[in-house]
Every structure is written in C-alpha cells, then in structure tokens.
C-alpha cells in the first residue's frame, strides 16, 4: 500500500481533482440502487408496489413478505440444499486445490506443463455451454437428480481458479520454512498441514469465498441436472417462483431475492478486504 501510495500521489496529478467524483457517484448509485429498490419494495404490501409516484421508503415496514418466504412450502429444504452444496463443494475444492497448487508450486516433475495446462485451460470453458454433454454423461451414469452429480461438477469448475490462485501464493512463500521442517523429518502432508496452510490462510480464504459464491449462485447445472423439487437450490426456486405464483406477488419475490443474496453479502462484508485484495492480486493474472 505504501509503495503504491507513492505512485498514486504522482499519477493522480493528471486526473482532474473533482471530475472523478462524478464516476464515483454513478458507480455508487449504479451498484447499489437495484438492490436498495428491491430491498425497500420487499417491505411493501403487494398493492403498494403499483403506487405512483414510487416511494423509496415504504409507509410502514411490513415483514409479512419475509414471513411468507420463510413459510413457503419447502423453503427450508431449498436453503439446506444451497448450504449443503456450497459448503461441500468449497471444502472439497479447497482441499484439492491446496494439494494441486502445492504440487505445481514446489515440485519439478515430468509433464508438469501439460498437466498444468490441463487444469488451467478449462478456466476459459463457460459452464453454461457444458450442460448438454454433461447432462447426457450424468444420465448415463444414472446420477441425474442427485447431490453427487452437482457436487462433482461444482468442484470440477472451482478447481482451476483455486489451483491457480494457491499455486501463485505458495510460490512466493519462502522455501526456508519448509526446508527447516524437512530437516526435522516432516512428511509432505505434514509440511502442508503445519507449515503451508497456516501462512496461506488469506489465499485459502479468497479461494473459499470464490467457490462458495460459485456454488451458492449456480443456476444452469442445477436447472439441467435435477428434476425433483426436493433437489432445488435457492436460485432455482427463485426462478420457479416466477412461474408458480398464481399471481405476481412482487414484494414476496423481492423478499425471496434478498434472502438468497444476504448470506453471501454478510460473509463478504466480514472478509471484504481480503477478497478485494485477493481479486486484484492473484485471481486475475
């Protein structure tokens, strides 16, 4: 920060002193407004959303819509599905990425580059485009409509980025620490557990949040690979709400929307700095 602070003082001279507040204000409104508007409307009565002129602050805060969401048939199930899938995916993806990242960062071995490519190139393959062949494959394995299918595909899509970020981080850890441990006769797994993981927690956290976000928000896979309503996750159910409500109950839908966003938002607010730094330093290179 201090080094970039130096740069900053000089470079910023060329950017107009006041002008930059305009894009900043746009940025803030642009980013937060859709959420704020949804938030405010989620407290309104169904008829109130049709009111003109629109009111940003509802006349009275009405929690009935949130109660409707929590009492919605199967809501708990969808919530648990979402939590279960995100947590499982994240734990598995992080473990596998740590191992692979360490392997690539610390060992020179035959076919290293080919294997690295094999893991990294799929980063450019968009997940939505894979649903058709994956669907036929999963159905051949008789795994449609199972958690297994979702977890396997979620983990696979999370590994490339995780491995990349962690390998980059492990590379800059001083080797001396591990060498000391090696002299003490530590085995590789002990080295990872006692030496590497403790000092890599920030990077591990970044990777965890990334894969948590991916799995929590995932839509195409769960849409294509599951059929029964017990398998739905929150985003899937939100999609189905548009169809299944006999009447368009906007406040309830918006309340549902916010309920799906909030857990991630809270996590993000707790770890915000690390995530932002994680993105700007490691994730994008």
């Amino acid at each position: 920060m201090s080094q970039s602070g130096m740069n900053k003082a000089k470079i910023t001279k060329f950017i107009n002193n006041r002008l930059h507040f305009i894009p900043l204000a746009i940025l803030a409104v642009w980013t937060i407004f859709p959420l704020l508007w949804a938030f405010s409307s989620s407290f309104k009565k169904p008829a109130e959303v049709y009111q003109t002129p629109p009111q940003l602050i509802p006349t009275d805060f009405n929690f009935a819509n949130y109660m409707k969401v929590f009492e919605y048939d199967g809501f708990l199930r969808f919530l648990l599905n979402s939590i279960f899938l995100s947590v499982t995916t994240t734990v598995l993806a992080v473990i596998i990425s740590i191992l692979a990242g360490y392997g690539f960062a610390r060992y020179a071995f035959r076919m290293r580059h080919i294997l690295l490519m094999l893991i990294l190139v799929p980063r450019i393959i968009p997940r939505a485009s894979l649903i058709v062949p994956l669907f036929t494959g999963i159905s051949a394995l008789k795994l449609l409509d199972t958690y297994t299918a979702l977890i396997i595909t979620y983990v696979a899509t999370a590994i490339p980025l995780g491995t990349w970020i962690l390998a980059g981080f492990f590379k800059v850890i001083p080797k001396a620490l591990e060498e000391a441990a090696q002299i003490d006769g530590a085995k590789p797994w002990q080295m990872i557990w006692y030496v590497v993981i403790p000092i890599s927690l920030p990077a591990i956290l970044t990777v965890s949040i990334f894969s948590l976000r991916e799995a929590w928000n995932e839509f195409p896979f769960v849409l294509a690979f599951t059929t029964s309503s017990e398998m739905r996750t929150l985003p899937y159910q939100l999609f189905m709400l548009q169809e299944s409500l006999g009447m368009q109950d906007w406040p309830m839908m918006l309340a549902f929307t916010l309920v799906t966003i909030t857990p991630l938002l809270i996590l993000y607010l707790i770890f915000e700095k690390r995530v932002v730094n994680g993105v700007t330093s490691g994730a994008v290179k």
């Binding site: 159905s139 008789k142 795994l143 449609l144 409509d145 199972t146 958690y147 029964s228 017990e230 398998m231």
Partner: peptide
Amino acid sequence: GSVDNDSN
C-alpha cells in the same frame, strides 16, 4: 433398482 434419477 429400477429408478435412477431419484434422490429418495
């Protein structure tokens, strides 16, 4: 055995 795509 007969149904594959069912979680239950």
